[in-house]
Simulated scan of single mutants.
Amino acid sequence: MIGPYVNGAALVIGSVAGVLIGPRLSVNIRQQMPMAFGCASMGLGVVMIVKVKFLAPVVLALVLGTLFGEIIQLEGLIQKAAGRARTWVEKIVPAKGTISQEEFLDKYVALLVLFSMSGTGIYGSMSEGMTGDPTLLIVKSILDFFTAPIFASTMGFSVALLVVPQFAIQALLYLGATLIMPLATPDMLADFSACGGLVMLATGIRICGIKQLPVASMIPALLLAMPLSWVWTAFVV
């Protein structure tokens, strides 16, 4: 298992670098670069969405997953954890940024999805688990290495803590790939990709500040996408 370690190291090193060089970055760079990353997230989302095979189960997964996420108040739980993480980190290393708590929590939720649950990370982990090739995760590592410093320059070392859910998810997918992939048909993977693309699109919109979409509440949709795609194929089509 190479990819998850490389990706985790890129996130941590990039975050630390961002905190250290943050004061030297112009306000314009710190404000405008997240917009570029948001646009990239939206672009990746669109590319993933167009792979859809059956739109109905994808939409159903998104609706049911988001409903479940709202019922259990998933975003609120993540925000509480993020707030505690920020408090804990700033007791050790006081933050130099001026970002408000509300803005911090909004961005932290979006970054959780961007770093831990992007299509590249999910497929890269599963691909390495099946083939031993870490190429996709190494490509993601390069992107994360340049993304993390921009956000860490205003959000502090708390961004580096995202390595915990990132590594946990990638490691589980890597280890479970031999169980998941044989059961997944190309149509199921295509619909899973489309569902992930919708979440990535919502993440990009949120990062750009266009609309505060409930990206955290959408996360359970990823667990429903492939089962619903299978049901649709087996009993409807």
Rank of each mutant, 00 (worst) to 15 (best):
G3I: 10
Y5T: 06
Y5W: 07
G8D: 04
A9T: 09
V12L: 08
I13A: 15
G14V: 08
G14T: 12
S15Y: 14
S15A: 15
L20I: 15
I21Q: 03
G22Y: 02
P23I: 05
P23T: 10
R24L: 12
S26T: 15
M33D: 01
P34H: 14
P34Q: 13
F37E: 09
F37M: 12
G38S: 07
C39S: 14
C39F: 15
M42K: 01
G43W: 11
G43C: 09
L44T: 05
G45P: 03
V50F: 03
K51H: 14
V52I: 12
V52W: 07
F54K: 10
F54T: 13
L55G: 08
A56Y: 10
V58W: 03
V58L: 02
L62I: 13
G65S: 04
L67I: 12
I71D: 06
I72F: 14
L74A: 12
L74P: 04
I78G: 06
I78S: 07
I78D: 08
A81D: 06
A82W: 05
T87M: 14
V89I: 14
V89H: 07
V89R: 02
E90K: 11
K91Y: 15
V93Y: 11
A95F: 02
A95I: 12
T98R: 12
I99L: 13
S100H: 06
S100L: 10
E102Y: 05
F104N: 00
K107I: 05
V109A: 04
V109M: 02
A110S: 09
V113N: 03
F115T: 01
S116H: 03
S118W: 06
S118F: 06
G119Y: 03
G119K: 01
G121R: 08
Y123A: 11
Y123D: 06
M130V: 11
T131I: 13
L136I: 15
L136V: 15
L136A: 15
L137T: 08
I138R: 15
V139N: 10
I142T: 11
I142Q: 03
I142V: 13
L143C: 14
F145S: 09
T147F: 05
A148M: 09
I150S: 10
F151R: 08
A152L: 06
S153C: 13
S153D: 10
M155F: 11
F157D: 05
S158V: 11
A160G: 04
Q166C: 04
F167Q: 04
F167I: 12
I169K: 02
Q170W: 10
Q170C: 12
Q170L: 13
L172H: 05
Y174Q: 08
G176D: 05
I180W: 04
I180V: 13
M181D: 11
M188R: 03
L189T: 04
L189Y: 02
L189P: 00
A194Q: 01
G196W: 02
V199G: 00
R206Q: 08
K211V: 00
K211F: 00
P214H: 04
P220R: 00
P220V: 06
P220W: 02
A221S: 05
L222I: 07
L224C: 00
L224M: 09
L224V: 01
S229C: 08
S229W: 09
V231C: 03
W232V: 10
A234D: 08
A234S: 09
A234H: 07
